[in-house]
Each structure stands twice: as C-alpha cells, then as structure tokens.
Design a protein around this nucleic acid. Structure first.
Lengths: 153, 153
DNA sequence: TTTTTAGTCTACAGATTTAATAGATTAATG
DNA sequence: CATTAATCTATTAAATCTGTAGACTAAAAA
C-alpha cells in the first residue's frame, strides 16, 4: 500500500498538470482544493522540487509549478521520490540496489527471482505513464461516467 | 518494499516445500537453517497455519508442514497473509476492497486508474507462481550458476 | 526601504507499524 | 506422568508515518 504522502503528492502533481503553463499555484490553494493538510503538503512539494519534478517561486505571484511538461513527467519518477524504490526487495531495485541482509546466494534466491518479475511489471506501467497520460485517462473516464449518468436519466 | 516478516515467511514456505511429504519440520530447525529469529518465526508460521497454507502437529514428532501440495500454494496467497493486500491502494484491492478516504469520485480518480493496472500486473505474477514453480526456478538458477563456475575453472 | 507574500528550514510529537523477546499454557507422544 | 513442541499473552525498542509549530529567507509591491 502506498502512503498518504504519496497519494497527496500524486494528487498535487495531477492538479498542477491540469493547470500547466498557467503560472505558479499556491500551496494553500492546492491544500484546500485537494483536502491535504497544508504543512504536510509543503514538505511533499519541497521533496518534489528537490528532485527536479517541480519548480517554485517565492513572494507575491509565487507558488509551485511543473518543472517540465506533463508529457515528460512519469508516475514512476514521482512515486520514487515520495515512496522510495519500486522494487519489493532492494536486491532487485534498479535505482537503489542493495544486497539483502538475509540473502545468501543472490543468483539462486527464489524470492528474488519472483520479485524481479514483479518489479519489472510495476516499472513497465509507472515508468510509461506520464502525467499527460493520466489527464487523458481521467478525461476519458469522466466522459464515460457522464454517458452512464445520461443513460440513467 | 516487503517486510522482513514476509521474507521470513516466504523463505520458510520454500524450505518446507523442499521437504514436502517428509513429515513435520521443527520451528527450531527452520529458524536455525534460514537464520530467522525463532520467536518471530513462530508467529509467522502460526498466521500461515491459520490461513490454511500450513498445518502443524504438537508434541514429539511434531512441527510444521505444508497444508497442500507445492503446486497448490501460490506466492500471492502467502504474501497476502503476511503483507496484506497486493493492491497499492485499497480501492483497487480484490481481496480487501475499501473506499479511499481521500478519494472523491472513484470512477474518475487518476491515481486509481493507474494503480488498478499495477495491482493486476502484480497479481498476474504472484497468483500464477506456485511454490513448485519457485523450486523449479531455483533449480534452474543453480544449474546455470554451476555452469558459470565450471566455465571459470 | 519597509511591508507583505509565500516558499523553506528546523524541530518536534503522537500514532502506528515493525521486529523482536519472555514466559506461561496447551496438546500430543511415549 | 514426563517430555516435547506448538500456541497464546504480554511487553518492548526502534522505526516510520502523519501532522503541527514557528522561525527564516527570498521576491515583489507599496
């Protein structure tokens, strides 16, 4: 299960992607609109900024905005910032490899063999899904739902 | 990242699968051979027993053993017992669905749409990988490694 | 240049989860 | 009835998660 921190962060990114190139957005507005504790959100956005995904400006007219286009930001990049590596075990992580302390022979560890497949399957999805893709899927889902509602009426 | 508890549990299951139908195995032996804290292992095995994956016998000649054949125990079943649901967000869990508190409209939530795909990808792997499959892959990996060693000499 | 605005940094604190340990109890065998 | 080995209850230390408070810094406007 992903943490609230990650959920909040992804929500914020989707929110910012929706208003891409419309100038900086205030933390306070984002927190209010998405129902996220403001101080908590601050630290999340800061982490996203330090990783290069977001940029910010201080003072009047300031706020947060995407550091590059929604097409160039993947869910995988964002998730790694907030949740850490995708891999279920560190010995199969591509971005944060480390030997498992419990593990004897890495080449013949059954758990590792399976978890390598799991990691790759997760990465295949989140590293190929951009914020732009997410916006499109949301729009599609909203259309579908609208039709369902119309159908009901 | 999966917890130590889950790693220990999976190690124990693979260990027991290797000796399937050779009678009950002592917690103490398992703990020693796999380098798992004995008391911690006790509680893990008990949970696996309560879920039906393992069976046990008390007293002399007792111990733990697989409740069914290694072909009929999947990694997914075991992981769910120790780690909980596979789904990255509870609103896409097949075995433990619950509405996300942060979520407004579930049908049009972008995070949900992506995480549903992730859950399905994970489930596709772990629900179709049995303990028998893992044993086979280990055997295969050991063969490969042996050849590599031979080649070096 | 002072004031206002809004992000940044430091520190902390409560709640929950993780990873264990200790000891008493129960059930099965011989 | 003694021995064996799983089971149950309780506790604990450490880590992580979630959230809060307040001082600090940079930028813009008055």
């Amino acid at each position: 299960m992903i943490s609230k921190k990650t959920k909040y962060g992804l929500k914020a990114l989707i929110y910012l992607a929706r208003q891409y190139e419309q100038g900086p957005i205030l933390i306070a507005d984002l927190a209010r609109d998405e129902n996220i504790p403001k101080k908590f959100l601050e630290s999340i956005l800061l982490a996203l900024k330090n990783s290069g995904i977001l940029q910010s400006r201080k003072g009047k007219g300031g706020g947060y905005y995407l550091g590059r286009s929604p097409r160039q930001i993947t869910m995988g990049q964002a998730i790694r910032v907030m949740e850490g590596p995708l891999a279920p075990v560190q010995c199969v992580s591509e971005t944060a490899y480390a030997k498992c302390t419990e593990c004897g022979n890495e080449n013949t560890c059954g758990i590792r063999l399976v978890m390598k497949d799991v990691r790759d399957a997760i990465a295949k999805i989140v590293d190929h899904t951009t914020l732009a893709d997410v916006l499109e899927r949301i729009a599609q889902a909203e259309l579908t739902e609208k039709n369902v509602v119309d159908f009901c009426i």
